[in-house]
Amino acid sequence: MNYERQTWDMKILVTGAKGFIGKNLVAELKNRKYTDIYEYDIDSDIYELEEYCREADFIFHLAGINRPKDQDDYMKGNAGFISTLLDILKNHKNNCPIMISSSIQAELDNLYGKSKKAGEDILINYSKETGAKILIYRFPNVFGKWCRPNYNSAIATFCYNIARDLPITVNDPNVVLSLVYIDDVVNELINALEGKENRKGYFCEVPIVYRVSLGEIVRLLYSFKKSREELSIPDMSDDFTKKLYSTYLSYLPEDKFGYELKMNIDNRGSFTEFIRTPDRGQVSVNISKPGITKGNHWHHTKIEKFLVVSGKGVIRFRKIDSDEVIEYYVSGDKLQIIDIPTGYTHNIENLGDTDMVTIMWANEPFDPEKPDTYYMEV
């Protein structure tokens, strides 16, 4: 199917459009320039569903019941609503493809699982009767931004509570969860829309699944919280950690997005650590007042990178056993990184009439017990 045709011509119905998956899906469909999106949710009018089902070229059926007040509502809200949706499609003789969000619990003997399995069976029979293409996704636990905490997602609840210093309950930290990230889910659903779904028989699946224990999830989340105090950054080379960290930050209280850093201030300006990592070094912000020279020291093993982002100055070098002075003039008007090699004493002087701001990276966090910093005038 031609992508340009999809972008401008396809009419897409999303039920449960205000829910966790639906909200993320609709947002990304709009990002990808799909313009005809019919959003249906619990507060919509049934007559809207009639119109949408008549016009739709593809349906994402994401609506469902997770935590009903009455146990009978599992069947009504899951299998029952699928029947209603399919009856309307039959009335309009619309055999467009349908994707439904089922659950891995469809294999289990509980009311929720039975209602999901019943919905699958209804859809399979509908496909046999009409020839309509169907895509059944048995999702494991889905995590990511915009998921409702204290509802049916442990990760959403943990993120929300930990970010607010509220207690969490972990009955068995050794329990292993199968998890899929919301962006991976949405990407797979749009692949399905474009005819590129990951299919196994009647069922489709998100190709990227993580299996992580509750204990490890909780450990990571508390480390994210502590990272502000330590100025650390989680291991972004680990895909799950990266996605969990993004999820955690989305649950921060809105008055807690910012946090202060310790500024080491004197008459020369200030020096502030920004990020400390054991494997990628340290990033700091150095502010020098006009006419001020900082540095005049050298290192055995520590290396640095200087980037002046505001103001103008000069960085001077001298090999410790030489009289030759090397100069690099730097300015925020032309960004360039200056490497500070070992064995060279160096300094940086503000030549302007405003504060000079320099981003500094070192290959190791500062250790007062082993500073590897030796005073020597350039």
Rank of each mutant, 00 (worst) to 15 (best):
K69T: 03
L111N: 04
R54W: 04
A79N: 07
R67G: 04
D70S: 12
H61D: 02
E55Y: 11
L62S: 06
Y74F: 15
N110I: 13
N91T: 09
P68T: 09
G80P: 11
I104E: 11
D72K: 15
E51A: 08
I82F: 07
F81D: 01
F81V: 01
Y52P: 06
E55H: 10
A56D: 00
D57T: 01
K93V: 05
G77D: 07
S102Q: 06
G64M: 11
T84A: 03
L111C: 03
M75A: 10
D87S: 15
Q71S: 13
L86D: 06
R67I: 10
N66P: 00
D70G: 02
D57Q: 02
A56W: 01
G77F: 06
D87E: 15
M75S: 06
I88N: 02
K69I: 03
D72F: 07
Y52E: 05
G80D: 10
M75N: 07
I65K: 12
G77I: 10
I98G: 03
Y52L: 04
L85F: 10
C96L: 13
R54P: 00
E50C: 05
E107R: 14
K93M: 06
E51L: 08
I100M: 10
E50M: 13
K90G: 03
K93Q: 15
I59S: 00
S101L: 06
K93L: 07
I65D: 00
R67T: 14
C96Y: 10
N110T: 14
A106Y: 04
S83E: 11
S102M: 02
M75G: 01
A79V: 07
N110H: 14
G80F: 09
I88S: 05
Q105I: 02
H92E: 07
E107W: 04
N95V: 08
K76S: 07
E107T: 12
Q105N: 15
L85W: 02
F58Y: 15
L85E: 04
L111R: 09
S102C: 03
L85S: 03
Q105W: 14
K69F: 04
A63V: 08
A63P: 12
L89Q: 03
F58V: 00
I104Q: 12
I104N: 08
G64Y: 11
D73P: 00
L108N: 15
N78V: 08
L86T: 11
S103H: 08
I98D: 01
M99E: 13
Y74H: 06
N66L: 15
K90E: 12
L89G: 05
R67Q: 15
C96V: 14
Q71T: 14
D72W: 05
N78Q: 12
N110A: 13
L85N: 07
N95C: 08
M99R: 05
M75C: 02
S102N: 08
K90P: 00
H61G: 05
I100H: 03
F60I: 10
K69P: 00
Y74T: 09
D70P: 00
L62F: 05
F81T: 12
I59T: 05
M75I: 13
I100E: 01
I65G: 00
I100T: 05
L111Y: 06
A56I: 06
Q71A: 13
Y74V: 08
G77K: 05
G80I: 11
I65F: 01
N66V: 12
K93C: 06
D72S: 15
G80H: 10
H61V: 04
R54F: 10
K76P: 02
I88Q: 03
G64N: 09
C53N: 04
P97L: 12
